[in-house]
């Protein structure tokens, strides 16, 4: 009688324990949804293991994992730079760290294209396997302690369940996929690349890459912008901003016939683009071909509410002035 009661109690206890374990495990699983996702489907065309051993390592000084991480990917992309040089461009002493936006901005000053990845583990793996080391922002703190940290993902071995990072003082930190995702998730899966201007990231989208290039153009050198816009146009020939960007670079360097040829192609694809028509008309006028320029600028002025109508009217006035002077 008594024995039976004890057995019943034990069984109940075991049931509670099993339930507890199950809920802890399923709770854990929900902490790393993307790692769980990989169990269902490994991304197509991505190898199961890879490592970019060529990526250099800089051990970080004090709180300067930002400059160190940035230097690693930038040297790998062909820039001669050191963490010390970058410290003055990304480190904020009073915050004892580096902001994400400054990590993106600093690389542009060295003619690199900073590309922020979509917040997906699949994309991170795809970039690493395509040969691009990825800077990630992790929160390596536990519980209430927040500890933001930049590291560089240089490889992974899925069958072994590990990612390889250059992190802090560790030139090759092996970290389980689960732990990595837990720390990475808190930054909203923030990840970036520093690409040479003629190489497009494996996971780049047209819009994302176009904004990345045009952000670099603000502070980069003309040759870099030219190479980047050329690469962008090769991949996405219909991109109107890339056409305008490339043509503006040619124009600024006095290579007007090249600017014309780029804009002609763009005008053929986008006959309603006012900036394209305006810039083409302006270029032709500078080449002394006002007769060809005039109908183009008139075409540009047809939609009167266009944001660039004012610029087009200026160009029209310029063309008419030049024509009357030549008569």
């Amino acid at each position: 009688m008594r024995e039976a009661a004890t057995r019943q109690q034990r069984a109940r206890l075991a049931g509670v324990l099993a339930l507890l374990l199950l809920s802890v495990l399923s709770g854990c699983a929900s902490l790393v949804p993307q790692t769980m996702g990989l169990r269902e489907a490994w991304p197509a065309g991505v190898p199961e293991r890879t490592e970019l051993a060529r990526v250099p390592f800089f051990a970080q000084q004090d709180y300067q994992c930002g400059p160190a991480a940035l230097a690693m990917t930038m040297v790998d992309s062909g820039v001669q730079v050191t963490p010390d040089l970058l410290t003055g461009q990304v480190y904020l002493p009073s915050r004892q760290g580096s902001l994400q936006v400054e990590m993106l901005a600093a690389a542009r000053r060295y003619n690199r294209i900073s590309y922020q990845l979509a917040p997906r583990l699949d994309d991170l793996l795809r970039e690493v396997s395509a040969g691009n080391p990825v800077i990630v922002l992790q929160d390596t703190g536990a519980g209430p302690v927040v500890n933001w940290h930049y590291a560089v993902v240089i490889g992974y071995d899925y069958p072994a369940g590990e990612l390889y990072l250059r992190s802090g003082d560790n030139s090759r930190l092996a970290i389980p996929f689960t732990v990595f995702e837990y720390t990475w998730r808190k930054s909203g899966y923030w990840a970036m690349l520093t690409m040479p201007p003629d190489r497009i990231p494996a996971t780049a989208t047209e819009k994302g890459y176009q904004s990345a290039v045009s952000a670099m153009e603000r502070v980069g050198e003309p040759w870099a912008a030219k190479n980047a816009y050329t690469a962008l146009l090769e991949r996405w020939p219909g991109n109107v901003v890339a056409s305008i960007g490339l043509a503006n670079q040619y124009y600024a360097q006095g290579e007007l016939p090249l600017a014309e040829s780029v804009l002609r192609k763009a005008a053929h694809k986008h006959p309603d683009s006012v900036p394209v028509l305006n810039n083409l008309a302006h270029t032709l006028s500078d080449l002394g071909r006002n007769d060809e320029a005039l109908p183009l600028i008139e075409q540009a002025l047809r939609p009167s509410d266009d944001p660039f109508a004012a610029a087009a009217r200026e160009t029209q006035a310029l063309i008419l002035q030049r024509m009357s002077r030549n008569q």
Partner: peptide, 29 residues
């Protein structure tokens, strides 16, 4: 928002929770 956004700095990896140790041995991927 300069004071509100994350600033990555510390390199010390303080992954000390026991659950991680269990996790580490239980499943890695």
């Amino acid at each position: 928002k300069i004071n509100a956004v994350p600033a990555g700095g510390d390199g010390l990896v303080v992954l000390i929770l026991v659950v991680f140790i269990i996790w580490y041995f239980a499943f890695r991927r």
